[in-house]
Design a protein around this nucleic acid. Structure first.
Lengths: 185, 185
DNA sequence: TGTATTGCATGACGATCGTCATGTATTGGC
DNA sequence: GCCAATACATGACGATCGTCATGCAATACA
């Protein structure tokens, strides 16, 4: 039974990963359980051995993805001094490569409004947001808390707006301006 | 034929308004043509006398809603001096009432990521974003263009993040921090 | 006033949705 | 090596989706 449930946990991770990619690429409501299971190399029927419903999968995917993001930020802030950590976090977020790779991008900017409508998922998401804010506050000088809130807002907004621009030049302008607003040059 | 097509244009506006409310409340893919027509006081069949497809309606709804937002900002910036206009625009956007009333809220923060995936809709959206940036640049001191880009990013990001918070206190913190970042107090 | 036009309703289509009952093949424990 | 357990596949369900063909009632124009 140990080996079996280990395998099951692995499969569950594959389903979560497939859902993460597909939801971010096409939106939650545009992707069916069928497509997710196919992407995970399975068929649709076995889904309910792993999740109670599609809605439960959505909530867990968002929660897990954001917890991973928060953990990565925490690790960076522990491995480097404040200024270096801030630069690494903010520059990676405001990189044109992040804008282009929405399927692996931050859930706040790929699925923010969609998740805001799913009230069950919000507590876990808010918890990760708090962790991210704490990391940014540790890395920023001055009025830390306020600057952390403003910086995270500018990061999320700039990526959302950059993805809305059909013109790469305007998109890059948003990214550069948000970097400068965070105190980077 | 004049009176007739006038009536038809009115109905078309009702459909657009209904779509705007429902899409912002529940997301584009969560709302069917049936629900939109019902909200407009009609039945589903007549829809295709007004729009070529649901996708065409989505694009036009976003385009029209953002053009209205841009026009409102332009009007405000013409009726008041720079500092007053900036305060009116930014404070209205970062008002808790705007966060709460997503069904009438700015399309950038209610449907941003969803519209970013619909490439056909992006040119019209980008055009309105440019108009909004021009208004903000006119109202801001210093490095106007850069500050306009950063301010709009912070506004959109703060509202997205505030809607993700299950806790009103944290949500309001985002709004206040973004206001301060825009130079308001 | 009669006729052509047109805005919208009715109803149906194939496809796809989320969910679950059942079957099967594989595995761990004896 | 057999038996019980279980991970996943097959297949089907009712509902809902976007779309369109058709019909009707109301209106503009003669």
């Amino acid at each position: 039974m140990r080996m079996t449930s280990e395998r099951k946990a692995e499969t569950r991770e594959r389903i979560l990963a497939a859902a993460g990619t597909l939801f971010r690429s096409h939106g939650v409501d545009a992707v069916g359980v069928d497509a997710i299971m196919h992407e995970a190399g399975l068929t649709h029927g076995g889904f309910y051995a792993h999740f109670a419903s599609k809605e439960a999968l959505v909530a867990e995917m968002a929660s897990a993805a954001l917890a991973r993001s928060a953990a990565r930020w925490e690790r960076i802030s522990e491995e480097a001094d404040a200024a270096t950590a801030l630069a690494r976090i903010v520059e990676a977020y405001l990189d044109p490569a992040h804008v282009a790779a929405a399927e692996r991008g931050c859930v706040l900017s790929t699925l923010g409004p969609e998740m805001a409508r799913r009230h069950d998922a919000r507590p876990a998401i808010a918890a990760s947001i708090r962790r991210m804010l704490d990391v940014l506050a540790r890395c920023l000088p001055g009025r830390r808390r306020q600057r952390a809130l403003a910086t995270l807002s500018a990061m999320v907004g700039a990526v959302v707006l950059a993805r809305l621009c059909d013109d790469t030049r305007l998109a890059d302008e948003f990214l550069v301006a948000a970097r400068n607003a965070a105190g980077l040059r």
